[in-house]
Structure formats: C-alpha cells, structure tokens
C-alpha cells in the first residue's frame, strides 16, 4: 500500500506576544504516517493538540519544526516548508479537509458551496452541481434548502453541507475534524458509510472523532496524541 502522508518530528507551539511573549507548547516530535485506504484517528483528551496537528497537515497552522511529506501529483512535497502557492495547489488536488464549522459565504447557495471544490478543480459547473445534489440527498438535507445560502441553517444542516463539500472531490488524502459532532444518529451512519466508501477508493483518511461509536466504526488504528505532548519538556 502506498503511503501518501508521512509526518516526522513535527513540533508546534504558540507564542503569545500580547501576553508578554509567553510560549505555549502544543505538540512535539509528532511522527506517523497514513497509508492509502486506511482511516487513522487521532486520540487523546481535548487540549492534547489533535486539532492543531490536523490544521498543520492542512497548512492552516504553521509547524515550528519537522516535516510533513505529502505525495502531491508526481512528487513529494514538504508541506511544513512549502510556499503558500504550493499549499494551495496541495489543497486543490491532494488534501481535502472537513472542518468542524462551516465558514459561510454571503449569497452563495448551499448547492454551490458544495460544488465549489469540484469547479475549482476544473469540473463543469453543472456536472459539479449534479454531484452536489446526489451527496446532499444522501445526507438528507431537505431539497428546499439547496438554493439558500447556509448562513441561516442549523448547526446540523451546516455540518452536512460542510461534509458534502469535503467528500465531493476525489482528494487522495482527507482530513476530518469532528465531522459528526452535531449530527443525529441517522446522518452519523451516512458519514460512516461515506468514509467506508473513501477507504475502499484508496483514500488516506485522518480524523478526530469524539463520538465513540463512529470512531469504532471507522478507525483502522488510533494515533495517541498524548505521546506527542510537549508541555512538560518545553515549558
């Protein structure tokens, strides 16, 4: 099995300049890899740095040190030191991300929010919308909401739009930050199905799931983040 994502010795801390430059270490020595077709889950109590790791893998947080090697197109790229432009290309083609919350854009319909990542990858808008419709139907989002901007949706509805947006593309790596947090049981099961389908398609998945049932249903293995705790050493 290929290994499209290798993380080695990554460390992250926050320096709070507004609070006399106090340094808050988050994680250190983060090392793991994800194989294609597996779903790994970051485990550990809240505050252990699970979300920070995920955000570093998406380029949303900067890593202080270490390497994040990603199989991108035909080469390997170190995301920790890549230029913004490369990070954008990796996000477009290689790494998908489902965040906890949907960042809404005024006046853009739910359907187009979902279809957008495909359009960015060069798909025809109508074809992309068709796929978006299929996914939103699958996730039980009422059809009357599709043409509305999601800003006024409930948390669960927004979350489903967000999931559809994350799952619509065929990114070889998919990061999931508590995608099921505000879903009911029926929709959680749909997400579990979607994850299984991604695994079958050879996607490497890395996620955070607080929901025990979902975690057990999707996880091939758990990466214990407490092993990377940096607090005691650095402070």
């Amino acid at each position: 099995m290929p290994t499209p994502l290798v993380v080695s010795d990554v460390a992250k801390s926050f320096t709070m300049h507004l609070r006399d430059g106090i340094r808050l270490p988050v994680v250190a020595g983060v090392s793991f890899s994800i194989r294609a077709g597996e779903c790994a889950v970051l485990g550990g109590p809240s505050g252990a740095g699970k979300s920070s790791i995920l955000k570093m893998l998406y380029g949303n947080y900067a890593a202080d040190e270490g390497q994040i090697i990603v199989q991108h197109e035909d080469g390997l790229i170190d995301l920790a030191s890549a230029s913004p432009r490369t990070v954008l290309a990796v996000r477009r083609q290689t790494i998908g991300y489902v965040s906890q919350f949907l960042r809404t854009v005024p006046r853009v319909s739910a359907l187009d929010v979902v279809a957008e990542p495909l359009v960015e990858r060069g798909e025809e808008r109508e074809a992309a919308r068709d796929k978006a419709r299929t996914l939103l139907t699958h996730l039980n989002l009422p059809e009357k909401l599709w043409t509305l901007p999601p800003a006024t949706f409930s948390g669960g509805e927004q979350q489903r739009v967000n999931i559809a947006r994350g799952f619509i593309t065929e990114h070889p790596i998919l990061l999931l930050d508590e995608p099921t947090a505000s879903l009911d049981a029926r929709n959680r099961d749909v997400v579990v199905e979607l994850i299984a389908a991604k695994k079958a398609a050879g996607v490497a998945l890395l996620g955070i799931f607080h929901d025990q049932d979902v975690r057990e249903a999707v996880a091939d293995r758990v990466i214990d983040v407490t092993a990377f705790a940096a607090g005691r050493i650095a402070a």
């Binding site: 926050f14 320096t15 709070m16 300049h17 507004l18 955000k55 380029g59 949303n60 947080y61 900067a62 913004p84 990070v87 954008l88």
Partner: peptide, 21 residues
C-alpha cells in the same frame, strides 16, 4: 505574510496577533 487563513488563524508576529485579537 503567507496563506490568508494561516496568517489569520495562526498569527505569529506580535502586530498580527494584535490585529487578529
């Protein structure tokens, strides 16, 4: 300087942190 979401979500320079906060 950097990716917009990186700068806004993980501001590093003291001034950026002040702006964001």
């Amino acid at each position: 300087s950097g990716l917009t979401d990186r700068v806004l979500d993980d501001p590093r320079a003291p001034y950026t942190q002040l702006l964001v906060s």
